[in-house]
Amino acid sequence: MVTASDSDRLVVTGASKSYGRPGSRREALAAVDFEMTRGQFVSIIGPSGCGKSTLLRLLAGLEHPDTGSVSLFGSTPAEASAAKRIAFMPQVPALLPWASVLANVKLPSRVNRRADARREAAERAVAGRPDARREAALPVAAAPGAPAAPRYSQPTPRAAADPVALLTELGLGDSLKALPHELSGGMQQRVAIARAFATQADLLLMDEPFSALDEFTRESTQDQLLALWQKVGSTVVFVTHSVPEAVVLSDAVVVMSPRPGHIASIVPIDVPRPRRSGLAESAALHEYEDLIREKLRLAGVELS
């Protein structure tokens, strides 16, 4: 049963996950409850082994929880993945080395075409109705009487998903034909960002995507990610090791702690965007950083 609020929320209920053989099982995630609304940018932070990557893989449908459940806007991760509504961005750029930058970004549109056909049919069905334009701009939940229930009919702007436009916006307009190895690490990671957004996904899952970048590249790449996210309005779950990164990017920061992995606390970041623009914002961000470091310490994490 999909209720109106379900289709606008990402809900994890009592999810646990263990690895290893019976007898020597290691609990990676213990009964995690977690919720966020559509369009939010949420970071997950915590030390190694706190289960943050496991949580991300559960959301991506790459693994299944031993107990509990995951609901992505009213669907299971498997359904959302079949509808090509999840984009996953691993720690490394994970580009195809033999394909050009442009071909790499076009990859999401070239596989699982059945999902595209279904989505287009759903969009045509929505567009065919007299008041379509008004409703298309709203989340699908706002149209309770919608026929054929296209759960995922909230449109991502087409223009924002055009690979060339995406790459140009990310400063890679001159490198469309380049091969990945001809680019720097920061540029490769931006290609991976473009590929993730080209998926037109409802949910972007990012697993420490900037951990290998140097400080300057990291900040400019963060800014470009935020700019794209604000334009497209997708929901982002962002795993990171870095407290400043989590604070500057997120609407809320989920603090996790290890042995076994669980959520220690959730800190909403109430600082207006764009951040990093003035002294007042930067002071507020620093306060949040201190607060999160305190939460991590309380959760038993040794900070260096």
């Binding site: 449908g61 999840i86 984009a87 195809l96 070239r110 596989v111």
Partner: peptide, 23 residues
């Protein structure tokens, strides 16, 4: 990681073979 990207896109085995494993 590349396989995970293909899997979250729900690429078929044939697509994974043709676009990833063979090249």
């Amino acid at each position: 990681p590349v396989l995970q990207v293909f899997e979250t896109l729900h690429a078929s085995r044939l697509e994974i073979l043709g676009r990833l494993r063979l090249p």
